[in-house]
């Protein structure tokens, strides 16, 4: 099937075109026609007994044809569904592996035509919002996220992740009030037990130049960040480094930055948080591994470091 041409990652078009087509009731029409055929056959048999054998033969052929037709249609529908699920799975893997270009191409193609199931559309739109964030198209990402939050009944985990993405996009677009509203919602829903939310809060503090609050929050929530963020805790260390630097605590900033770089490449950090670009240039150079290793890796706060 030829995919209609769509401007690359045009969000509105993709949202509209990806709606699954309402199911056509072909089977019902076919069954209706079959019943009509049977009635006609019965009428002809009654009127012309000589034609009875022919009508019976045709009836058997029709029944066998119907069975084969339904089986073939069913099987092709199932294989199309499986193919779509496989595509979604491969897009998920591309996003996980940060192969953004390939993921964007696949998503553009998939969402340019109606998906087979609403679930596939939702998943594809979720990945689209991540890809848009990667390309710094935060307005578009917000459009997709808002569309999903407004129109789909999502499970709590997915809704939480989506709102986290929305809050980040809002912060990047300087919609601070809206971001604050979304973060308050997230806080209420997760009872403050979300490493992702803590990371967004840290970023808000960096974005609004509340360095002391960022340092305070980091140290307060470090166990939670460790538990929830995996390697993305590197982001939190990088934001902490920015905060230390802003507080004129260069030694602490250097340690936090070194920790960040142990977990995340500098390019990724600067791409995610443009505020870190200056710090990255300032602290550029080889990363030294501090030894000996202590149980708590957080640098101790210098006196007066926290307001």
């Amino acid at each position: 099937m030829q995919t209609p041409s769509v401007p690359f990652l045009d969000v509105q078009t993709l949202i509209e075109r990806s709606h699954p087509r309402p199911r056509r009731r072909v089977a019902l029409y076919v069954l209706g026609l079959a019943v009509l055929g049977m009635l006609l056959g019965a009428y002809i048999s009654a009127e012309q007994p000589a034609a009875r054998r022919v009508v019976e033969g045709l009836g058997v052929v029709m029944l066998v044809g119907l069975m084969i037709g339904f089986m073939t249609t069913g099987m092709s529908a199932v294989s199309a569904l499986k193919a779509e699920a496989k595509r979604i799975e491969s897009i998920e893997e591309l996003v996980q592996l940060r192969r953004w270009e390939q993921a964007a191409l696949e998503l553009n193609q998939l969402l340019s035509v109606p998906t087979r199931t609403p679930g596939a559309r939702i998943q594809a739109l979720l990945y689209l919002s991540s890809v848009l964030g990667r390309y710094h198209r935060f307005r578009d990402a917000m459009t997709v996220q808002t569309e999903l939050l407004d129109t789909v009944d999502l499970d709590p985990g997915t809704e939480h992740s989506l709102k986290l993405g929305l809050a980040i996009a809002m912060l990047r677009e300087d919609h601070l009030v809206d971001a604050g509203r979304v973060m308050a919602e997230l806080k209420r829903e997760s009872s403050g037990e979300s490493g992702g939310l803590t990371l967004v809060e840290l970023y808000r503090d960096v974005r609004t130049y509340h360095a002391a609050e960022a340092i305070e929050l980091f140290h307060q929530k470090l166990p939670q960040l460790r538990r929830h963020l995996g390697f993305r805790i590197g982001d939190a260390w990088a934001l902490l480094a920015w905060a230390y630097d802003a507080m004129q605590l260069p030694a602490d900033a250097r340690i936090a930055w070194a920790n960040a770089l142990l977990l995340q490449p500098v390019e990724e950090l600067s791409r995610r948080y443009p505020e870190l670009l200056t710090l990255a240039q300032k602290l550029a150079g080889p990363v030294y591994i501090s030894a000996p290793v202590s149980a708590d890796v957080a640098p101790t706060r210098a006196e007066g470091g926290v307001a």
Binding site: G230, A291, V293, A295, V297
Partner: peptide
């Protein structure tokens, strides 16, 4: 040992050594 220390440091950033 140097490579070992690097991976050790990364591990302890994620989970407390204890």
């Amino acid at each position: 040992p140097a490579d070992a220390l690097l991976q050790q440091r990364r591990a302890e950033l994620l989970v407390a050594p204890a």
